[in-house]
Nucleic acid binder design. Structure first.
Lengths: 110, 110
DNA sequence: AATATACGTAAGGGAATGCTTACGCGTCAA
DNA sequence: TTGACGCGTAAGCATTCCCTTACGTATATT
């Protein structure tokens, strides 16, 4: 028996929805409970919960129980695949400076 | 009457599908006709055509007629929103070098 | 002119997405 | 214990996505 066979680590899919990107933006500033997060959106609280689930499945956030709250925490490292994919095109934007950027990126990794 | 009222410039949505990201990767190397592109995928030619349409609507590619062919051409600049959004998190990966990267990014734009 | 090629698009269907309301369960408060 | 709170999940529904096959159109070939 596997822990969670139905989890989808699709980071690109997870960030494809504007609301989920905004949630990550908010979480980048501070951890949020579901209710705190829902305060920033017009959709229902369960809808927010479902979006957070997508982010959780993608590994972009973690959850931590605090009493009856669940605080969601941003995991920026999981954006790595997006960064890697996009940085492959740096040379297209500016050949003059982008090589330095790419060098920095490489050193950033190693 | 508007030219194309139903076009969706949703770049994040456009790159959310693995096949479309691979198409951009291929187009980054060289322009491709639809048939040339379809040669790299298992799906039908119309399916490829439809994916290219999504990329076209997002502005990520342009098409150029050459006889009965249509050559698709990569427009890297349109990845800007993705790059901008992701680069906002650079500081999370490495505070030491990322500030320089962000500086370079700013100068890259202006 | 007749045929082949390259491609877009319509039509259809199965699956996924994104929302809602209803409900159940654990936790804090009185 | 009783009730309010915070939250996840089930169920239902409309919409979108992604693929297929069938067909139409413009261009090239013979």
């Amino acid at each position: 028996m596997v822990a969670r066979p139905d989890r989808k680590p699709d980071v690109f899919g997870a960030i494809s929805h504007p609301s989920r990107r905004r949630m990550l933006d908010l979480l980048a500033g501070a951890d949020h409970s579901v209710n705190a997060m829902a305060g920033h959106f017009k959709m229902s609280r369960p809808a927010v919960s479902q979006h957070l689930r997508v982010l959780l499945d993608a590994g972009l956030v973690t959850e931590q129980r605090h009493g009856r709250e669940r605080r969601y925490h941003f995991v920026p490292k999981r954006l790595g695949p997006v960064r890697d994919w996009i940085s492959q095109y740096e040379r297209f934007w500016d050949d003059r400076l982008s090589r330095l950027q790419m060098l920095l990126s490489k050193r950033n990794k190693g």
